[in-house]
Write a protein that binds this DNA or RNA. Structure first.
Lengths: 226, 226
DNA sequence: TTTCCCGTGTCACACTCGTGTCACATCGAT
DNA sequence: ATCGATGTGACACGAGTGTGACACGGGAAA
């Protein structure tokens, strides 16, 4: 498993120094992509999914801010700005456009690298806690998208929260009461049987993965890997 | 009750300092097992069930990652990595392989010890009070899953609650009356003999562990370790 | 506003499967 | 050997669950 990093810098020597550092230091951890002008950078942002971007602000073609905006409209990978000494207002603008960190020239490669790892770890943690999966079912709590075998499926609100609860407790048997208390919360003046109906509709929408929801007679339901 | 900790470190002095610290500090709380190379560590992981592992990453024989993977494939005991200063990518990789925490050399033993206790407490919380076991039978009250020799078996509702009662009173003789009052609760207008039937069905489903339910003629049933 | 549609709760019916009961076989104690 | 206690197979009933249909209500579209 390697992480894809985009480094954008017009000063050729610095660009090489940085990319070499990432290639060597990580020992295979990084896949480095470089660009030395704004247009090239924008094209590469559009055509790839990066795990990290390091953007110089002053660039020919397009500014680092433009690239940042383009990246943000596409995803939310961590971005570090590289800025010249004394241009603090640039930094401010950088945070506005949504960068995660910045370094001021001249900077040490080691320091930049440390920041990279920190951001990456944070991003990973966030993703992990947002991403639920079990067998062929995966669910992203942030985007609220549900996929079965990487194909997107659409489900309704109640089914969604029910699925989240099932995923958060996969392999456990969940009683109707527990499900009611978690998914229906306040409107507890409903029949136990609504759970059955919700499960049915969820199974319908899950299609081929419907078998992963097992009925445990007398006790409740259970989501299994297969 | 003591906790079994595996400490793997090739630097002899450090290894001794750590193991001494755990032995003295815990005052009997810890059973310390040590290894100073990868091969030895892997053998000890395979041959024991640990409650905690502290793994150096750089080792002769096999890396801490390898040991971590081996441990993960076996169970989910908490793992703390010990890494040298400046090797942040190791930390990242550690989180990927599934470590729970890490310390960077040089570290204070006190700090490491605090992390240990924290992880242990967290792990305990997940297991304890929910887990019942007797001989080759284990039952998780939270997930409602029953295992015999680590193989999952499926049982029905009545059998499940009967087994819970048996497990909560293992080695005791339980009369039919007591079982009826606990497992059948309200529907007490049934024959004593339903217990026999329930026991029979439970034995069937427990398979190789069926012998653990002993009949005590004239009094009732009793769950034994073997 | 009105109209329509979609999400959701409820009911009715069908059916599976768990469970209680009985009859008979077997076991064990005296 | 005898008798009470327990194991075992079979069976029938009913609880628990799947499923289709419908009604209600809120939000979107006209």
């Amino acid at each position: 498993m390697s992480y894809k990093v985009l480094i954008v810098e017009d000063l050729q020597e610095l660009l090489e120094a940085m990319s070499d550092f990432y290639r060597e230091k990580g020992a295979g951890l990084w896949e480095v992509v470089t660009a030395s002008d704004g247009k090239d950078a924008l094209a590469k942002v559009a055509g790839n999914d990066f795990d990290l971007m390091i953007l110089d602000i002053m660039l020919p073609g397009a500014s680092g801010f433009d690239i940042c905006k383009a990246a943000r409209s596409k995803g939310d990978c961590p971005i570090i700005f590289v800025t010249a000494l004394g241009s603090e207002n640039s930094i401010l603008k950088g945070y506005e456009t949504g960068c995660d960190d910045y370094v001021v020239k001249p900077f040490s490669l080691k320091q930049l690298y440390a920041k990279s790892l920190g951001l990456l770890k944070r991003a990973k943690k966030n993703q992990d806690s947002d991403l639920l999966s079990c067998g062929s079912i995966s669910l992203n709590k942030r985007t609220m998208l549900v996929k079965v075998n990487d194909r997107e499926v659409s489900i309704n609100a109640k089914e969604y929260f029910l699925l989240v609860y099932l995923l958060e407790n996969k392999n456990s048997v969940l009683t109707r009461r527990a499900i009611l208390e978690r998914v229906w919360k306040d409107d507890l003046d409903v029949t136990d049987r609504v759970v059955d109906t919700a499960i049915r509709r969820l199974r319908d929408n899950l299609g081929e993965a419907s078998g992963q929801i097992k009925t445990v007679i007398g006790r409740g339901y259970r989501l299994t890997e297969e």
